[in-house]
Write a protein that binds this DNA or RNA. Sequence first.
DNA 1: TTGAAAGCGCTAACAC
DNA 2: GTGTTAGCGCTTTCAA
Lengths: 342, 342
Amino acid sequence: MATIYDVAQESGFSSATVSKVFNHYAGVNSLTKEKVLIAAKKIGYIPNISAQTLVTNKSWLIGVIFKEDLHQGLVHPHFGGILESFKASMEKSGYDIIFLNKNFSDLELRYLEHCRYRNVDGVLLASSPLPEKEAAAIEKAGFKCVSVENDYRNIPTVISDNYGGTKQILNYLYTLGHKKIAMVIPPLKSLAGRERFEGYKIFLKNHNLVFDENLVVECDEYTDESAKIAIERLLNKCLDNFPTAIFAGYDKIAFIIERTLLARGYFIPNDISVVGFDDLEMARSVTPTLTTVYQKRKEIGEEAARIMLKRLEGNDSFDTNTITRIPTGLRIRNSTCRARNN
Amino acid sequence: MATIYDVAQESGFSSATVSKVFNHYAGVNSLTKEKVLIAAKKIGYIPNISAQTLVTNKSWLIGVIFKEDLHQGLVHPHFGGILESFKASMEKSGYDIIFLNKNFSDLELRYLEHCRYRNVDGVLLASSPLPEKEAAAIEKAGFKCVSVENDYRNIPTVISDNYGGTKQILNYLYTLGHKKIAMVIPPLKSLAGRERFEGYKIFLKNHNLVFDENLVVECDEYTDESAKIAIERLLNKCLDNFPTAIFAGYDKIAFIIERTLLARGYFIPNDISVVGFDDLEMARSVTPTLTTVYQKRKEIGEEAARIMLKRLEGNDSFDTNTITRIPTGLRIRNSTCRARNN
DNA sequence: TTGAAAGCGCTAACAC
DNA sequence: GTGTTAGCGCTTTCAA
């Protein structure tokens, strides 16, 4: 492998000058620059990032903490989509993505250790909630953090506008005449869960509808099993006071609701409307296709990258406690229709 | 950040000794070792990988080339699933995953340059076919390659047993009485496409069925649009000689076939059976649920990791031209039934 | 069994 | 505008 000294020799200048050329220093004669570049190209010189990192303390590496309850890994339709977009944005600015893992050592702050070991410049938190303490330790150690989907103290967060999205879909149901709307709440330990539930309550208030305990039920975990249990509980609770529509806190719940109701002989949407939140690919292929809220995963990833880059440039004047909410969209499909007049 | 010198000072030994301890050298007094370890823990020492890489020329980094026609990125159900498993396996051996990208420079062998820049130890080729020349250049430059889904000269490949899988599903149809089976072939530029088509022809031969040009059609690209066109062509070609079953070269095609046929008034599976290949999550949620071939993505990723690790250990005595085929499974669902006696 | 010292490839003062 | 040189944190002879 050609080194900077080879380029120096080939071009007739010193290694310092070659370095300056490659780092776009101002004070280099343009002819010199040209000669150096030609020499470098000739011998196929590629700078060695390890050497660079050793002296500059900058690795051009962004660590990603990507673990989630569902254990779907990269294929996770939401986190995976966001990461894909974040990655693409960061690459444009010369950063590479590396996965941080917790099996790195047997100590407590394993992610932190991995950050140090790899000397990452920043960290994207794209996972189920981390202990607040662990996130804080990473940020405090000087690694610029950006979080997606979760909020941590002093770490900027990017997330879908769950309030707006909930409002969109519930208002849509309202215009269809639905006033008795049940909700299966996502785990309240997640920010999304809390915000969507909050949005639901705001909706009720805005339309002078009363909150009915028997129409809501929380899903404990982000798993199908947990969703099934929650749905069963809901259906049992409201048997004698059946809703005209159900708001599933996220699409997967909606799919299960559809199947459950169909199996019990209900017709969707005629007997009852069902809506979700996510707009997974599958929302277009289930029967009936699902009316849901579209999350702009691409935008979320891009915004997270934008904030990360700003932070990496030292432009950290803004409030790190900021939550940036990305607008959602409504996807109207076949799981909803006018409410029957009971 | 604590350095090896800090540990040396804290423990009372030299940096050389500390290094030996951390690299598990034989000739270190066990008491010395213990003292060094205690000192290291006390001051929170983490070795600096950049410095290590600079001298050892080993980065503990595996580059992944992960680009595919569908532009689904990480969320790609097949490649994403394989990568997830590969990553998990490699992490257990201390390797981290980094994405190689082609926007790295404007030169021709951009992936190669990125490999050099990051000093990766190995490369996983998990993408749509790369130019043979480019793959060869990477391998030749000393980066240990393993390919998934595609075959390159002198690079070990891991892929589903497409022959076996095709045989499984076609034999199943045969046992249901199907003898006139159409096929929508995946792009023949892909290894999977070639093997599945080959498997189809072998099946026909084994059962003394004649190959009928009008019952097969190739899909040009791995896109929904291309699939739709192919399906249209097939349906037009065999109108007067309708098959009793259709073998879709991969699940997504099968989903589109189902929708197309249903829209045209056919009943599946009563009028015609439909089968796929992949077993995507959606296969369980479309109507009717899809009978298909299950690809063991986890095993593929693990096997790729196993081969990679072997190569990294210098144990490269085996034939690098090897193709390892991972057995598939049959998933029988509701899109198939006995063939009607015409 | 341990340590001194050179060197991996690069950057950044500082001197010229 | 360009070059000299020290040093980033580590490994690895080689000597003791």
